[in-house]
Design a protein around this nucleic acid. Sequence first.
RNA 1: GCAGGGGUUGCAGAGCCUGGCCAAAUGUGACGGGUUUAGGGCCCGUUUCCUUUGUGGAUUCGUGAGUUCGAAUCUCACCCCCUGCACCA
Length: 948
Amino acid sequence: MINYQEIEEKWRKAWEDSHLFESETDHRNSYFVTAAFPYPNGPQHIGHLRTYGTADALSRYKRMRGYNVLYPMGFHATGTPVLALAKRIKSGDRGLINDLKVFHIPEEDIAKMTDPVFITRYFIEEIQRGMKKAGYSIDWRRKFVSTDPAFSKMVEWQFDILNKKGYLTVGKHPVGWCPNENNAVGMHDTRRDVEPEIEKVTAIKFRIENSDRYAVCATFRPETVGGVTNLFINQNSKYVSCRVEGEEGEYILAKAAAESLAYQFKMEVVREFDGRELLVMRCINPETDVSIPIFPGFFVDEKLGTGLVMSVPGHAPFDYVALERLRSEGYNIGEIKPIKVIDVEVGRSAVPSEIKKIPEKKEIPAMAYLEAFGADHSAGNDIIELATKLEYKEELHTGRMSVKGYEGMGVAEARKAIAERLKKEGGATDLYMLMNESQVFCRCGFPVVVKVVDNQWFINYGNREWKDDVREYLKEMRVLPEKIRNALASAVDWIDLRAVVRSQGLGTKFPFDREKIIESLSDSTIYMSFYTISNTIKKVDPEKLKAEFFDFVFLGKGELESVSRSTGIETSIIQKSRESFEYWYRETSRHSGPDLIFNHLTMYLYNHIAVFGKERWPKQIVVSGVVLSEGEKMSKSLGNITPLIEGLEENGVDPVRAVVIGGADLISDSDYNYEAINGVKDRFEYIFSLCGDSEKYPAGELKNIDFWLYSRMNRKIKTVAAAYEKLELREVLINTLYNSVLELKRYTSRGGKNGIVVREYLSNMALMMQPITPYMAEELWHRLGNSNLVSSERWKDAEEAMISDKIELYENLTEDLIRDMKEIYLLISKKSDSKIENARIIVADDWKRKLNERIRTMKKMPEIMEYVKKENAVDMEKASKYVSSMLKKIESLPVENLTQEEEFDVYMQARDYIREALGIPVEIEREGESESSRADRALPLKPSIDIK
RNA sequence: GCAGGGGUUGCAGAGCCUGGCCAAAUGUGACGGGUUUAGGGCCCGUUUCCUUUGUGGAUUCGUGAGUUCGAAUCUCACCCCCUGCACCA
C-alpha cells in the first residue's frame, strides 16, 4: 500500500528546500495567473482544485520545456462578501455558522469572525495551507491582498487612465433598494438570497380630458397602445395626483405604487383621492387621439407598476375578461369593442396538450386564446394567465402588426419603435419594476423597491473604438479550450455600460467620488500585473506609489531619476520593478472559471487594452470547468461539499489531482468520485510494484515485444506533448496513466521482461505525469534510482526512430490472432465432444497480397481478372472467387502490407506464446504448402485457423 | 426573450472541425468464468439484435428530410436539455 501522506511530506519539503518554484529572471518567461477569494466558497473546497491545479499542471509542464515560469497567488477580498459574512456572524446567523462547520472551522475562530480583517487573514492562511498541500508550484513571495493600500494605489492609477481616455461616464441607474436601511440590496442582502429582478417597462401617459393630469399605465406591450379601449383601476384603492420633477402636469398613480415609485422619480403628492373618482373621467389615447373611459378592473393591483392598467381587450385576455364581466354584471361600458392590432396564428407554438380546442372566433386574439384553453370570461385567473402567456409568446414570435404605419412589422421591432416614438413625443417614459414571482424582502424585513440612483459612475464598455480594439485583439489571443472563443466574442460585443462604484463593501475609494467604493469586479481587471511588482515594493510606503511610479513601471513613461525624485522611492526599487514587469508581463496565461466569461474575463480584456501597450495585452485565456461530487453539483444544500484538505488527506493528493484535473476535458465538469479515485490508486500501486519487480529483470537482447514497447512509448511522448500544449489534460492522463498501465501489462503478459526497457518506460512515465501528479512522479523517479528532482527535469523528446508502424502491426497481428483462435477454440470445444489436439495457422500466399493492391486501385472485377489472366500466375477460379469476395469489403482491405514471409515470421516469433495461451501444439504453415481444407480461407494479415 | 453550450451504445464520456479501417476509444457498472475460490483485488470473456466449424450479418449515435458510392461525422428544419443576462463575486 502506498503511504501518500508520507510521500507527500517528503517531496513537499524537498521542493521547498530547493526553492524550486521561486522564479528567477532568466531563461524564457511564462506567466500563469489566478487569484483566490479569502472567504467561504473560496478555494478551500475540492472543486477549486480544478482551475488552480490546471494552472499548476501547465506551469510544471512549461518548466519542463525550459521556460522560466511564474505562478503567483493573491487574494481578492474586496466587495461585500467579507463584510456580509462579518455582519451575519455578528447577528448570530445559525444557518451560516453551520455552513462554516463543514470546513471544520473551530468555534472560537467563528466567534472572531465578526471582524473582517480576521476573516481575511484566517481564510488566506487556510487556503495557502491547502494549496501547499495540493502541491501547487506557487511562488508565495508575491502574495498580496486586494485590500492592501499599495494595490489600491494601482487601482486609482488605473481609473485615472480610464477617465483620461473618456471611458468613464455618469448617469442614472436602477438598483434594488431597501428603504429601511437606505442602501442597495443585491442577492446576498435579501431573505432567502433571491436576486431582485429589475425590469424596464414603458409607462404610457393618458391625458385626462380637459386637464393637465395624466393617468400613467405601465406596460410590457407598448405596441398594443393602438388597441387600448379604456383604462382599468382598482376602485377600492387610494390614488394620488402628484408632480414629478422634470415632467409637465400631474401624474395620477395608485397611492401604494407611488410610494415605491418615489425612489425612481422625484415627486410630490398634490392630492389624494378614492379610486372611484377616476371612474367618471375620460382620457385620451396618445396613439389614436380617441377619448376612452376608465373602468374598475378586478385584477388591478395597487402595488404593481403604477396601479393603473391600459386595457387592450383585443390582445390581453385579462382585459377582455374584465370587460365581459362588467358587461354581464350590467355595468355600462357603452360601445366598447376589442380592437385587433396584431395578426397571429393561434396555437402555433403550443404543445398539443395545452390547446383544448381550435378556436373559431379568430378575429379577436384575446378571445381566441381563451377559447383555445376551453375557457370564456368566467375562467379562473390561472387559466387566463396561461392564455395570456401563450398569446404574449406567440405574438412576439410570429405576430405581425396590422395597425397603420407598422403593417407587417414584427412585434419585437414594433414594440421598440412605438415605445421610442412615444417617449420622444412625451407620451411615455421608462420605469422599472421588480419582476420576482413573490415580493422580495431585505434581510431586515422591509420589502425591496427599485431605486434609480443619480450620479452613478459607469465604465462605458459600449465605446465603439474600444470595443473594436478588443474584438481585433481577441482574434490574436489564444483561447483554451478554443470552443469558448465564441462565448467570449459575444460577451465582448454585448457588454455595455457597467456601474463601477457602490456605496458599501471593502475596496478602493473611487478617485472621482470619495464617498463611493470601486466595485469589486472592476478593481480586479488588471491585478495580475501587480504580481510582477508586489515583492519589489513590499517595503515602500504606499503613499509614495504615485501615478508617476506606475507610469514608469507599467508604461515606460518618464525618466528613472525624475520618477525617483517625485515619488521619493529609491531608483533601484523602481528599476527592479520595471525590469520585473517587462520580463514577466509578456507571455501571460489567465486561468479562470466558466462563470467569469461574461463579466470578469471580458472586463479583463477591455481594461488591459485600455491600460497597457499592445505587447502587454493578454496572450492566453484558459477556462476550466467545475467539479461535481459523485455526479452532482456541489452545494451547501446537498451537503456534498468536500473541504480541500480533508479530501486530500483522505485520498492522497495525487489521486485527487488526477481525477479533478485530468478527469475531464478542460471545459467539461469533472467528477470527484470514489470509483475514479480508486481506479487511479490501483494504477499507482501497479506502477510501483512493477518498478520494484523490474529491478530483478535481466537486461538481455531486445525482441519484437521490446521494440513494440519502445515504439508505443515514443509515440506516447508525442501524443502527450501535443495534449499538454493544448492543455488537454484528460488526454494526458489517459495516456500516461491508463494506457501506459495497459501497455505494460500487455508487455509482461507477452513475455516481455527486459529491465532496461521497463525502467526506461517508467522513467518517461514519471516525466510525463509530473505536471498532473507531481508527488507520485517524484517518488517513482527516485525509486528508479534518480537522485535529482523530476520537477526540475527537462522534457524528454520522443525518439522518432523508435516509432515503428511495422513493429506495432506485428504485435497487433499476434494479438488479433490469439483472440480469434481463442474464440474458435471455445466454439469448437463447446460443440464437439472430441478432444482438440492441435491448431494450424495458415498464412496467405503472396498472390493474394498482390491482388489486394490491384483490387484497391482498379476496383472493377473485369479489369482485375484481365490482369490475373495476363500474369497467369494463379488458378483463375481461385482468383475470381477471391477477388469477388474481397471487392465486397474493398473499404476494409488492410492498408499495411507484409509479405508472406514477414507475416510467417511474426507468427513464428509468437508461437511459444500462442501455444501457452491455448495449451495445445501450434503449427504455422504457408497456404500453398498446407494440406488443411481451410487453407484457402487465409487472407493477408488474417491467417486461416484450423483447429482440430 | 437574447447570448453561449449540448443531446452518442446501462452510466460517465471520446469521436464530430479534417465524411469511409466506428458497433463506435477509455473509465465504470452488470453478468459469466478463472485465480487452491469469505470478501476485495487481480485475470479472461460477454454486455443492440441475429448468426457461427468459425474471424459473419442486420439495425443503431435527439427527430425528420437532404447532399454523397458512403454520415454519429456535412446542410436544412424541428424537438428537448443546461448555463449566463449585470453591481453579484
